[in-house]
């Protein structure tokens, strides 16, 4: 059994802390993602409005964006396209409750690293995020 201090050291060695933007039109979903990923030590910036999210992305360096496809005014695909223009190196995970071939193809063309179908499991979300950040 590993001592807690070693746990911490191991954690610091294997996991990279990241600046993560979350955008979903459902506040509870945003809150859940924040809680799950903050427990992993990441810094979460959560939004339910597209303009606010894009404005934040223009002002702050970000490592990862987790975007719902169905938003209030724009689609997650459109937001991803704008984010790419702001920060070409940003990684992205797309979340959707209604997967379609068309949105999956568009997301992958715009460089999304993962296309996940809601409701995503906590563990599945944690693994996807780690996988994308380390990929």
């Amino acid at each position: 059994m590993m001592l807690p201090i070693f746990n911490l050291i191991h954690h610091l060695k294997t996991e990279k802390m990241a600046e993560i933007l979350v955008l979903d039109d459902v506040f509870d979903a945003v809150l859940l993602i924040r809680k799950i990923l903050e427990r992993k030590g990441h810094t979460l910036h959560t939004f339910t409005e597209e303009e606010e999210a894009l404005a934040f992305a223009s002002a702050q360096p970000l490592d990862l964006a987790i975007l719902d496809i169905k938003l209030k005014k724009m689609s997650g695909i459109q937001v991803l396209e704008k984010l790419r223009q702001i920060n070409a190196g940003i990684k992205a995970i797309m979340l959707t409750g209604y997967p379609t071939i068309e949105t999956a193809r568009q997301a992958l063309e715009l460089g999304a690293a993962a296309y996940c179908v809601k409701p995503i499991d906590k563990q599945e979300l944690e693994e996807k995020v780690e996988q994308v950040l380390n990929g």
Binding site: V26, D28, A29, L32, I33, K35, K70, G97, Y98, P119
Partner: peptide, 19 residues
């Protein structure tokens, strides 16, 4: 559409329950 509408609250409820 119904499933989609259910997915987001379900995602929140399930995640929160797991946490």
């Amino acid at each position: 559409t119904t499933a989609h509408k259910l997915n987001s609250p379900l995602f929140a409820a399930l995640g929160m329950a797991q946490l």
